[in-house]
């Protein structure tokens, strides 16, 4: 049985259905802004020490980092808007499934106004886990449901550990870091299976070669300058890397091949959704990346045709 456990479209809510027309433009803008922010702020500013101390280069570097600093709030607002519109697009068919996402946005707004607190952050992490798991029930195909379940359960494990660490500030006991390690391992396996679960039916040799090149570059970075690559993986994508480095390089190659194949076959929405999931990282360290992750997962299931349930 497929996991189409959602309500039928309600014809009395045309305004909510109209929200879907905003999705492609918002998604493209969010992906673009997040990629710029990732390149300038989360990567370039962290390897600045490797830039030669030449005034012209330093000037370019400073300008680039400043541009990244301005891009960050742009991407954060776009991500929040994308989650809002995706939830509204989900409302007519599955109002219950959209509620956790809307509640998460409310929690983000409350944290912005009231400031971070241990309990507030733990609540936000719990809501994100529930919202990710709820999206699973919107999936129409078994393969898509498997992918969304893998991402959702993996993130939920990591988020539970992170939330417990925050609750420890109130006197609780933190879950062991191995729980997050297990979640990261499951996420890696899920992303490794992305070509089969969310990739196109037809592949070209160029897709595979491109994925292989990315895997080789990743392996070169992880084995050539392991400390920098591992630090960037942790700080940028939240990956503690408990598994062998080679597996991470192969996963990067599999994801790259999937994205390129999707773009080649014209499945731009699905490629954009997958990119957002990657940019969100594992156990997002801030509400902005949480928005990217949730938006990516929601778009992945919204992108599917809403016909009768399929089992692939």
């Amino acid at each position: 049985m497929a996991l189409q456990l959602t309500r039928p479209v309600l014809r009395s809510q045309p305004r909510l259905l109209a929200a879907a027309q905003f999705l492609p433009t918002l998604m493209f803008a969010t992906v673009a802004a997040a990629l710029v922010e990732l390149t300038l702020l989360r990567l370039l500013s962290r390897v600045a020490i490797h830039i030669p101390d030449v005034p012209a280069l330093r000037g370019v570097y400073s300008a680039a980092v400043q541009a990244g600093t301005v891009t960050f709030p742009v991407a954060a607002l776009l991500a929040a808007a994308l989650v809002t519109v995706a939830a509204m697009a989900m409302l007519p068919r599955a109002p219950i499934l959209a509620i956790p996402a809307l509640a998460l946005l409310g929690a983000q707004a409350a944290l912005l106004v009231a400031g971070e607190s241990a309990l507030g952050t733990a609540a936000h992490q719990w809501l994100l886990a529930v919202a990710l798991l709820a999206v699973l029930f919107y999936s129409t195909s078994r393969r898509m449901a498997l992918f969304v379940a893998g991402v959702g359960v993996a993130q939920a494990a990591g988020l539970a550990q992170a939330a417990s660490a925050n609750l420890a500030a109130e006197g609780g006991r933190a879950l062991p870091l191995s729980v997050a390690g297990a979640g990261e391992s499951l996420l890696l396996v899920t992303l490794l299976a992305a070509p089969v679960l969310v990739g196109p039916r037809r592949w070209s040799r160029r897709d595979v070669i491109a994925g292989g090149v990315v895997a080789l570059i990743g392996a070169g970075m992880l084995f050539g300058n392991a400390s920098t690559a591992r630090t960037l993986a942790l700080w940028t994508f939240g990956l503690g890397m408990p598994l062998p480095a080679l597996l991470y390089a192969i996963t990067a190659g599999a994801m790259a091949a999937t994205l390129i194949a999707l773009l080649r076959t014209g499945a731009i929405e699905r490629a954009g959704a997958l990119t957002l999931i990657v940019l969100g990282g594992f156990v997002p360290p801030n509400s902005y990346q949480a928005g990217l992750l949730l938006a990516g997962v929601m778009l992945l299931v919204l992108e599917q045709p809403r016909g009768p349930a399929t089992t692939d």
Binding site: P73, A169, S287
Partner: peptide, 9 residues
């Protein structure tokens, strides 16, 4: 601010 930290408190 447009985003909040989810770091440990």
């Amino acid at each position: 601010r447009t985003a909040t930290s989810q770091a440990v408190t």
